[in-house]
């Protein structure tokens, strides 16, 4: 499968500041890719380069193999973009906004109208389609902006903080639509400050800090990078009495702490430890009452990566 996005050595300098500093990675087609990083890390600048709004100082970016600088028009045709601000036209109705987006993306009239109808329905805005967007709430404007990005049924969808500052209902609706489009084959490239959102939605995430990629992997694997912090909490009932020493012998378990009738097993590989735990319980005639895997959260990984990189940069 082709890569939806492929950047190599992509760099943007604003004077002496390297807003984006020689970043290279690929996003395969079909993925939901999350781009995380603190304020000012360079997320928006990266998206602006990938969408042809800003010319890179150095490096190249390809969209489905098309160079965004030299084959701009063909590359742009494959994309839908949701900007950080909901840049809808307040003077136009929801319907007119969508029609306009369709027109400048060369979507034929028939197709445009069916699609606009479908999108407004998905976002629960059909009843308000003739109303001027200026009177819409923040969440409604964002939904219109996302609909505008989807009007051309893009193969690749960019979203810059699509859910920031919105209520739970709007967020759920937006996430559902994004997942839905992804299921239908759209590659999604999104930035977010909501780590739980990235954890739930993204196949892979990249963490960017001060213009540099500090980690890129699946949320699962990223969590594993802080090995020592992973543990399994287990409690038993039954006739036998488990012992700390025996539990310590289970494969991949490095340390055991017992307290309040519960045992906490530290491991660098929770699935393996869990299997061992199951075997152990069966052999000893113990029944497992409850088990909990406690991992480092993606948030812990994020904080550790973005703060350590900051220290590294200063030295």
């Amino acid at each position: 499968m082709p890569n939806a996005v492929e950047l190599s050595g992509l760099t943007k300098a604003y004077g002496a500041l390297l807003a984006v500093d020689h970043i290279s990675f690929r996003v395969p087609e079909g993925e939901i890719f999350g781009f995380l990083g603190p304020n000012g890390a360079g997320k928006t600048t990266t998206i602006r380069m990938l969408t042809g709004l800003v010319t890179p100082t150095e490096g190249t970016a390809k969209i489905f193999g098309l160079d965004i600088q030299n084959e701009a028009k063909e590359a742009k045709r494959c994309m839908g973009i949701v900007w950080e601000e909901s840049n809808v036209y307040p003077e136009l109705s929801a319907w007119e906004n969508l029609a306009f987006a369709g027109e400048i993306y060369h979507v034929a009239k028939k197709r445009r109208e069916t699609r606009a109808h479908e999108l407004l329905e998905m976002f629960g805005l059909l009843a308000r389609k003739e109303d001027k967007v200026g009177g819409f709430s923040k969440g409604m404007k964002r939904r219109v902006a996302i609909s505008m990005a989807l009007i051309n049924s893009p193969r690749l969808l960019f979203l810059d903080e699509p859910t920031s500052g919105l209520d739970v209902q709007s967020n759920m609706m937006i996430r559902d639509v994004i997942r839905n489009e992804n299921r239908k084959g759209t590659t999604v490239f999104l930035t977010t400050h909501n780590i739980e959102e990235a954890n739930q939605m993204c196949d892979r995430v990249a963490i960017i800090n001060r213009g540099k990629i500090v980690a890129i992997d699946s949320p699962e694997n990223l969590r594993k990078t802080i090995k020592s912090a992973q543990s399994i909490e287990v409690s038993f009932y039954g006739t036998g009495e488990p012992s700390e020493g025996e539990l310590r012998m289970i494969q991949s378990v490095s340390r055991v702490i017992s307290s309040g009738g519960k045992f906490r097993l530290f491991t660098d590989d929770p699935p393996v430890a869990l299997e061992g735990l199951w075997d152990y319980a069966r052999k000893r005639g113990l029944r497992i009452m409850g088990v909990n895997t406690l991992g480092p959260t993606l948030e812990e990984v994020y904080v550790s990566l973005t703060s350590s990189a900051e220290v590294g940069r200063r030295s």
Partner: peptide, 14 residues
């Protein structure tokens, strides 16, 4: 100001 100009610039048009 409302960043709608960005949409025009990033659209597949000359």
């Amino acid at each position: 100001r409302i960043k709608a100009y960005d949409r025009l610039v990033s659209a597949p048009i000359s």
